[in-house]
């Protein structure tokens, strides 16, 4: 992992035995021992030090913690790390290249000013990337269609108009449609 490990903020308890989990996170194989109650979001942040995945509401409403599990968008706050044992996980850190060049969707977000405070952005990016990839761009890219695509993510700065624009422009770049 690129970032140094952050100390877990969960106390370990003798009545809570650890389970070994193996997964591929952003292309890297990792093995850790975790309490079964550790949420995948906290596992990614505290055990792996990948703090791009944000935790907002912790009950599946806000979408900030969205990551891609085995090719599909998922709430990492509604998944235990032990459930993801054996899975391939992609977090927002996987989008940009190692040389710092941005993913087309990130470029589009930057150009369209599709983020304000940025707290919700990682969740939006992962949710949109997975839905574009799952459908290979064959998805309703009208404003209404995109708003359905975005409906699982909340932006408290309410900058949705520019996010819609960014998705349209990114889809054009990624799939040369329209």
């Amino acid at each position: 992992m690129k970032k140094s490990q952050i100390r877990p903020d969960y106390p370990e308890r003798s009545d809570d035995p650890l389970h070994e989990v193996n997964m591929e996170v952003n292309g890297e194989l990792i093995t850790r021992n975790v309490s079964p109650r550790i949420l995948l979001a906290d596992f990614i942040r505290h055990h792996l030090g990948l703090t791009g995945t944000h935790v907002g509401c912790e009950h599946g409403v806000c979408g900030c913690c969205t990551v891609i599990i085995d090719g599909r968008a998922a709430r990492s706050c509604l998944t235990f790390a032990v459930q993801a044992d054996g899975s391939k996980i992609r977090t927002v850190e996987s989008l940009a290249q190692d040389d710092g060049s941005l993913h087309p969707l990130q470029e589009a977000f930057k150009e369209s000013h599709a983020l304000q405070c940025g707290f919700c952005t990682p969740g939006f990016l992962m949710s949109i990337v997975s839905q574009l990839e799952e459908t290979e761009g064959e998805i309703d890219l009208s404003e209404d269609g995109i708003r359905v695509m975005l409906s699982g993510n909340l932006c408290r700065c309410t900058g949705y108009q520019n996010i819609v624009k960014a998705v349209q422009s990114a889809a054009k770049r990624m799939y040369k449609t329209n």
């Binding site: 709430r75 409906s151 699982g152």
Partner: peptide, 9 residues
């Protein structure tokens, strides 16, 4: 039913 990321799981 909820949203796509919820239905995926």
């Amino acid at each position: 039913v909820a949203h796509v990321p919820i239905r995926c799981r």
